[in-house]
Nucleic acid binder design. Structure first.
Lengths: 147, 147
DNA sequence: TTAATGACGACTATTATAGTCGTCTATATT
DNA sequence: AATATAGACGACTATAATAGTCGTCATTAA
């Protein structure tokens, strides 16, 4: 459903959100903690940086950090970055990515209905979710020790 | 979003539904009418037949026909046939297809939330739609000629 | 100056997709 | 029976995407 890049990116973002008050995080640490191949993670983080979600610093004491607040990072943006825009036929979406290959743009093509409904479902879901939602979900359960 | 097989299958099913009272339809005709490579369409129709959606007859006067009523053919079943089951991590779905590669099954993996919500959205959408819905959508507009 | 650390282009291996080709089998018609 | 018609089916191929890897360079702090 998602490419590994997208999945790794989301996991890395969650981790960075958790650690966001501890200074820059090393790629190497993220790699080990999340089980993501280091060189691969490098590319991913760089993309996220270019997208304006992360900041980085080279040299000793360097690393990566969240640049925006978790509630301002939409999951839809991450997915789009790595998996590209939802492949919806141009008949459904005006800002078309490529022309529809299956239906010949016929105004009655029955595929349109499925694609349109699906697009609505998926983007509704991904647009609504932010990094904050995932961070809260993945929070360690809080034990309130009695005494 | 969908493979060509899935898209072609849906288009062929819609066409077969439209023609379902005219006797068997030739692969060659379907191929031309929908712009689907003939040999490729062959495979697709055969899969749909094995799935119990179509019947076929060899020899002269043969061809393919819908075996079930359009309202009894779920789009979800077509998509699943060609694109496989939604790749949802095993942590989300008990009937797991393959174990989750990205999250290590951790009960707090933040990916779970996205995957779970997305699966809910998508299968809700595809389970609800039947071939009948698409047929109605793709019906030629009816002209009621005055006189 | 040096060690630490990210930046980045180029490369590779594996897999999935979207077909194609050739031949075989079943059926209706004559 | 012979023949033309039509689907069945296994094997093959070409292209592209995915999931990485490798080597080297550029920055920065100490």
């Amino acid at each position: 459903m998602f490419s590994m890049k997208t999945k790794y990116a989301i996991k890395a973002l969650i981790r960075l959100a958790h650690k966001r008050h501890n200074g820059p995080v090393l790629i190497a640490d993220l790699s080990v903690e999340e089980g993501i191949p280091k060189k691969f993670l490098e590319n991913i983080l760089l993309s996220l940086k270019n997208e304006g979600m992360l900041a980085s610093r080279k040299g000793k004491g360097g690393g990566y950090a969240l640049l925006r607040r978790p509630e301002d990072i939409r999951i839809a943006q991450v997915v789009q970055l790595f998996d590209g825009p939802l492949a919806v036929p141009s008949c459904v979406k005006m800002s078309m990515v490529r022309s529809c290959n299956a239906c010949g743009e016929s105004p009655q093509c029955g595929l349109r209905l499925v694609m349109a409904e699906l697009k609505e479902s998926i983007s509704g879901c991904l647009d609504r979710l932010t990094l904050l939602d995932l961070v809260l979900e993945s929070e360690e359960p809080v034990f309130d020790p009695v005494i």
